[in-house]
């Protein structure tokens, strides 16, 4: 009971802060301050309160809105392909080297019939809130693996036998949707490098908003920032261009089965919009040569 009391206190406090920001002249109804079952409290109350009030998220977006996306292509002269992508405050820089002879003496390139895709992700020490030297931990390795398997099947690797395509990603600023940002940046850099692929691989995150005590319906949310990612169950979905073909799907949090469908639908819809944006960037760059 004491823990529940603490959470409730916390909730009221946080509500009052965000309340002032979103709707200054309306008193918050105090319904769910007492007698609330603990089972509903597994998700952070922060999002619950503000989102159910005005259907606005912490940063003022609606459920289906992407953050500001700014992308550049061919940012670096020394690389074969390069790109820079901002999704809100998440900033990623990607360079592509290759197709080229691999570095390691033993396994230059991969098999006889196709190129190997190597991915290297580096978190800059200043990318987070606090400075942290991030060694290649399990999460980074998993992201590298996800990217490498996704692009191995997407790129026409059979055109480059015995060679290696190296993707180097520098994460300059972290604010949620890391994997999605990495995928989008890599796609742009690979297009810049002129490596043939069947379609854009674009990715987005989607979550399901927390429920309140009085209603059990939850909205799917698109493109999460860091705060939301910590509070809500979410997935990262990557699709191939305009089609609904899912190429990457990662969900590491517990989520109720029936919510999965709407989350996926919103994620795929976000990917389609993301494709339009990235396509615009590529076409804008291409105009320079026309």
């Amino acid at each position: 009971m004491t823990t529940a009391g603490k959470i409730v206190n916390n909730e009221i406090h946080l509500q009052s802060i965000h309340h002032q920001q979103t709707q200054p002249h309306q008193l918050h109804p105090p319904e769910h301050s007492d007698g609330e079952p603990e089972t509903k409290k597994q998700e952070m109350p922060l999002d619950t309160s503000t989102y159910s009030l005005a259907l606005l998220r912490l940063d003022g977006r609606r459920w289906n809105e992407l953050r500001r996306i700014h992308a550049q292509i061919n940012t670096q002269a020394a690389a074969d392909g390069s790109s820079y992508l901002e999704m809100g405050n998440t900033k990623v820089l990607c360079t592509v080297t290759g197709p080229a002879e691999g570095r390691q003496a033993g396994q230059r390139g991969a098999k006889d019939n196709e190129a190997k895709v190597e991915v290297e992700i580096g978190f800059a020490g200043f990318s987070g809130l606090e400075r942290r030297k991030r060694k290649s931990d399990k999460r980074t390795l998993e992201m590298q693996h996800t990217l490498s398997t996704a692009y191995s099947s997407l790129l026409l690797t059979h055109l480059y036998p015995h060679s290696t395509i190296t993707l180097t990603l520098h994460i300059l600023s972290q604010d949620g949707s890391m994997l999605a940002a990495c995928i989008n940046a890599s796609t742009l850099a690979l297009i810049d490098a002129g490596i043939p692929m069947s379609d854009y691989l674009v990715a987005c995150t989607a979550a399901s908003s927390a429920t309140t005590s009085d209603s059990d319906n939850s909205d799917p949310l698109l493109d999460l920032n860091n705060l939301e990612e910590q509070e809500l169950p979410f997935l990262t979905v990557g699709t191939l261009g305009r089609s609904d073909k899912v190429s990457v799907l990662i969900c590491e949090s517990r989520v109720r089965m029936e919510r999965m469908e709407s989350m996926l639908a919103v994620g795929i819809d976000g990917c389609k919009r993301m494709r339009e944006i990235l396509d615009g960037v590529v076409k804008e760059y291409g105009k320079r040569f026309s």
Partner: peptide
């Protein structure tokens, strides 16, 4: 160039090498 740092700089040389 980086909002979350106390100071930051980026230099790109004309041969394409770039440091941040």
């Amino acid at each position: 160039v980086l909002p979350s740092t106390n100071g930051s700089a980026r230099i790109a040389l004309d041969d394409g090498t770039e440091a941040l």
